[in-house]
Structure formats: structure tokens, C-alpha cells
């Protein structure tokens, strides 16, 4: 059974100007659809990656997974329980300690006024659990030393801070960790350390990751399954090999072609056309059609459904 089941998930933000401005400028309310009808499932002990450019809604999905944002419609079920509609407080509490998150900015995600020990044990301490020696044990597990527990976050480098974040995420012994761009603020050599650590911990603790990233190389290295997002919609989902070898969706193809390659010396790429459209007024039909090299009439009129092709799922009228 899937650990995470996301059904028809949408999230709309009200981005209207204040009431008085709207009246004076005679404008109606404006809404931004950050996530639109997204479906996917995450198997236990696997890594599911959500990849996309800015405005693709990947971080919004991450926040809905952990319950920081409520869905506008659709459901997120974790271990069969929907945090947004569940009323049994005991069940909510149990699920909350099963989900953790690692954030992008290691400088903003640790309270600068707290000692590392207090930061790490907070998820347990706030529930009244036993915290004796817990911080020290976790620090060693993430490759830091016991003495670091008494220090403040500013005494650590970016990579070390991200290790502290991981230690905090492990404190409540979660099953699922949502990692929102966990290495994009880090240097390459430090990124390698953190990615390796994440892989080790996944094996040791039987963790499930939802990895949110814009970096295709990281996603390919870490993921068991990849979902590609464009303008809040899931356009393609496949295993890394299938996705990178035989991408079906024109957007995925464009993305892979445009990404700089380490061995692409003097590569002359035909750069993709256009930019990501305004999510407040998304294009009709398939959101990608204005930039799509193979777009047809139907793409402008009708939003494509997710279809299964050779074990991959793709939302394109023309893919085969």
C-alpha cells in the first residue's frame, strides 16, 4: 500500500489587491492556481522526486504534504489518514510525528537563538517525550560530534547546518521526510556529503523521501520515481531511466535538452523558446502549448488527461 496518496490535489491562492484598491481600479479578484489537479502515490521506502522550474508548484505540494498548507480541493492521505479532514486528535498527532521536512535554506531553518541540542530535540520535547542523550546520538548519526550540541547555529557552515536540520527531522522517528531543495543552497562538494548522508539514513531507518528539486542531476541520482511539474500540473511521471532516456512530454524533453551538461563542451543547444507563463492567467488547454514545438489545435482547447504509456504516465495529447 502506498504511504502517500495524493488525489486530485489543487491549491489556489488569493492574490487580489486590497478591497479599496480593487474598487478604485475596478478590478475583480485575482487568483493564482499554484497546484492544479495533481495525482501521485509514493511507495514506502522509496524516493519520489518532484521536479520543475519556478512557479511549477513543487514547494506548494510539499507544504500540503506535511500539513503546513491546506488543499483547496483534493486530498493528501498519509498512511490512509487525511490531515486536513481528520478530526481524531490522537491520529493527527501520530501522523504529525511521522512526517518531517528538511528546508532549502540552512541559515533560516535553525532558530539563531537556540542551542543545537534544543533545536534537535524540539519535535520530541514538545510532545513531552524523553530527550536525554537524544541530540548527542542524532548528531553522531549525521556525522557531527557530541560537543556540537551546546553550540549555536551561527558557529556552523551551511553543510553542517543542513546536517543539524536532518538530525532534527530524524528526532521524532518519522517515516516520511519531505525534502524541499535540500542541497540547492550548498556547494557541490558539500552537496555530495549531504546526498550521501540522506541515502545512508534512508537505508538505516527505512525512510521514505519526497524530494523537491529543480536540479535534474540530483533528482536523477536520488529518485526512484520522478514527477515533472509545469505550471502547477503534473505533466509526466516515470522512473529516472525512462524519464531521462525516453522522455515523452515535450516539456520534459525541452528541460533535459536545456540543462547544462558537464560533458557538453562547446555544445550548441537550440535554446528553448519563451518563458514560463503567468500562473494567474495560464494558457488554455495544455499549459505548455504556447512553447510546444508540436502543439496542435486540440492542445489549445482541451487539457490533456494523464495517460499510461509503457509504464510511464504522461499528460500530453500527442505523446506516444
Amino acid at each position: 500500500m502506498a504511504l502517500v496518496r495524493v488525489k486530485n490535489l489543487s491549491r489556489v491562492f488569493d492574490v487580489s489587491k486590497p478591497w479599496l484598491n480593487r474598487v478604485i481600479e475596478r478590478r475583480s479578484k485575482a487568483f493564482l492556481t499554484a497546484v492544479s489537479e495533481v495525482d501521485f502515490e509514493v511507495e514506502p521506502r522509496s524516493t519520489y522526486a518532484l521536479v520543475g522550474e519556478s512557479g511549477s508548484g513543487k514547494s506548494t505540494i510539499g507544504k500540503m504534504l506535511v500539513g503546513l498548507l491546506k488543499p483547496s480541493s483534493g486530498t493528501v492521505e498519509i498512511e490512509g489518514i487525511d490531515l486536513a479532514s481528520e478530526t481524531d486528535a490522537a491520529k493527527i498527532d501520530a501522523i504529525r510525528s511521522d512526517i518531517q521536512m528538511i528546508f532549502q535554506d540552512p541559515y533560516a531553518s535553525l532558530n539563531p537563538r537556540w542551542r543545537v541540542r534544543d533545536i534537535i530535540v524540539e519535535p520530541v520535547a514538545s510532545r513531552g517525550g524523553r530527550t536525554e542523550g537524544l541530540a548527542e546520538k542524532l548528531l553522531e548519526q549525521v556525522g557531527l560530534s557530541v560537543q556540537d550540541a551546546g553550540k549555536f547555529p551561527h558557529e556552523f557552515s551551511g553543510g553542517q547546518r543542513q546536517r543539524i536540520c536532518i538530525a532534527r527531522a530524524l528526532a521524532s522517528e518519522p517515516n516520511l521526510i519531505v525534502c524541499d531543495e535540500p542541497t540547492s543552497a550548498l556547494d557541490v562538494s558539500v552537496q555530495a556529503q549531504v546526498l550521501n548522508l540522506m541515502s545512508d539514513l534512508k537505508d538505516d531507518f527505512g525512510l521514505t523521501y519526497v524530494l523537491i528539486s529543480h536540479d535534474l542531476t540530483v533528482v536523477r541520482h536520488m529518485a526512484d520515481k520522478i514527477g515533472v511539474l509545469y505550471l502547477g500540473r503534473l505533466v509526466e511521471e516515470a522512473s529516472p531511466n525512462d524519464l531521462f532516456e525516453t522522455p515523452k512530454h515535450p516539456y520534459t524533453q525541452m528541460l533535459l535538452e536545456a540543462a547544462p551538461q558537464m560533458d557538453g563542451f562547446g555544445r550548441e543547444v537550440q535554446p528553448p523558446e519563451g518563458e514560463i507563463p503567468d500562473p494567474i492567467n495560464p494558457p488554455s488547454g495544455c499549459a505548455f502549448h504556447p512553447r510546444c514545438p508540436i502543439a496542435q489545435d486540440i492542445c489549445k482547447r482541451q487539457r490533456p488527461e494523464m495517460r499510461s504509456i509503457n509504464g510511464m504516465r504522461v499528460a500530453c495529447h500527442l505523446a506516444e
Binding site: S189, V190, A192, N196, T217, H221
Partner: peptide
């Protein structure tokens, strides 16, 4: 070390090479 620690398509899922420590 810098080159080897970058995840490369050709290397599959093996552990990434890591340079110990930080600058």
C-alpha cells in the same frame, strides 16, 4: 574531487565521491 562529487548520469546510483571537510 569537485568533478567526482557532482552526480553524473553516466555513473548511476553509486555513492557520490565526497571531499571530506569544508573550505
Amino acid at each position: 574531487g569537485l568533478m567526482a562529487s557532482t552526480p553524473l548520469a553516466s555513473q548511476g546510483k553509486r555513492r557520490l565521491h565526497q571531499i571530506p571537510g569544508a573550505m
